[in-house]
Design a protein around this nucleic acid. Structure first.
Lengths: 161, 161
DNA sequence: TACATTATTGCAACATTAGTGCAATTACAA
DNA sequence: TTGTAATTGCACTAATGTTGCAATAATGTA
């Protein structure tokens, strides 16, 4: 399944990815995760997209198609280490998006809104929009809030004219 | 698979369900859906619970265990006709909850908050809590908002003392 | 640089959830 | 009561989620 066998060193891979990609290693190692070619590719994809991605979408975009289970575990380990967070979705498939700074292994602080365009069906992160405070009924203890807004994204609004 | 074959008339079923259940038929027919034993049971379960339920949870609670696909299609048809709405969930499985009045075939107006207790893991509807307005960045067209709050529900708060 | 240790990957296998087509059955209304 | 259209059950298939284990790769250390 592996298109590129095992003949490259980390350095050659990094070189082939370009200078911009060096921080990938740091991002990963900063969380205690080892840097691997597969993880580098996944992280890179998330950095290139501001949308929340499903496993299936990632598989189509990955430069080297590696094992489905590996991708599955990479996503979970990234989430556990605070690199990614799950994004709400009622379509049945799990979506992940890159965490902003401030997320850690034990706590996710992605208190921003997600926007799903009903035209292009992309799910975008809106880091600049904070989730407003909600007053809960008596007895409820607030933990964390997730807000998903459906609507039309700017790109689709423009192209519909 | 059917435990009760086909020997009961609608009236006998209604009778066995008790007087309280007559409105079930009206609820269903009001949406253009036919009343069947299976649909009656599903609707009844939702009326008995104020939590959002998964298909698996429903299957365990149904008095007569009928076909999985039938349940699947009942849930979708209930959603399409504005009887149920999907509740956001990042666990991967779809949850449904009873719509409040005001939902129709073409538009859902369940602008209330859902609360997921991280202790008992129930997902409750909080119809009295409205989702506050959110100011979207320029170009975005608002359609609909869904808010899920994680925390501890009153029951679990009390029992943890 | 080589080696040992530990994390990570790939494979196999299985579980759960989604979804479609079609024939048999049932609800409803004429 | 009966005809028709909706609904159900069955058979199948696809997609997604999950675990165990052996092979492999990444990192720290000698």
């Amino acid at each position: 399944m592996m298109e590129i066998p095992v003949l490259f060193s980390i350095f050659e891979i990094e070189e082939s990815l370009g200078v911009e990609e060096a921080p990938l290693k740091d991002m990963l190692r900063g969380t205690g995760l080892r840097y691997t070619k597969q993880r580098g590719e996944v992280l890179q994809l998330f950095r290139e997209h501001d949308t929340a991605l499903t496993q299936a979408e990632l598989e189509k975009m990955l430069p080297s198609q590696f094992d489905r289970i590996t991708l599955y575990r990479i996503l979970r380990s990234f989430e556990a280490s605070g690199l990614l967070h799950k994004v709400l979705d009622d379509s049945g498939t799990t979506r992940f998006a890159l965490c902003r700074t401030g997320c850690s292994e034990h706590e996710h602080h992605d208190e921003h809104v997600h926007f799903r365009c009903s035209s292009c069906s992309k799910t975008l992160c809106l880091p600049e929009v904070a989730i407003p405070d909600v007053k809960l009924p008596k007895g409820y203890v607030f933990g964390d809030a997730k807000l998903l807004i459906d609507g039309i994204c700017p790109e689709c609004v423009i192209s519909s004219n």
